[in-house]
Amino acid sequence: MVSSENRRKLLDISGEDVTSCYQCGKCSAGCAMAAMMDLLPHQVIRLVQLGQVEEALASRTIWLCASCLACSARCPRGVSLPNVMESLRVTLLRLGGRHLDPVRLPADVLENAPEQALVAGLRKYT
């Protein structure tokens, strides 16, 4: 179902009104993580435009976005896609979900990964 209400809820979190996106795909063309994504970044934005947020929330893409800002740096319409990705993650996390269980992280990751990775990861995933 197409819903503008869903789009507005995300806007409150992200500060990004995605209506200006004209689907040129430059974000996807330059995304370093695109190969692993089930939906390309511009497709996530399209779903948000349509208010079909459920499908966007179910996508792997929102967890694969590394917030590297390559997309927003080049976006001709000034859309901060990483903010939109974060608003989708946060929508799930604020409901009490978590994408990553710190207890289940592999021992070698816990032992070797820099603190920065753990803090950043836990902030984005829990």
Partner: peptide, 19 residues
């Protein structure tokens, strides 16, 4: 149908990242 994000030189060819 889509924009290109990046073009860079690789040897004697140009790599185009598009969509």
């Amino acid at each position: 149908r889509g924009r290109v994000a990046r073009v860079f030189q690789d040897g004697d060819r140009l790599v185009v990242f598009g969509v």
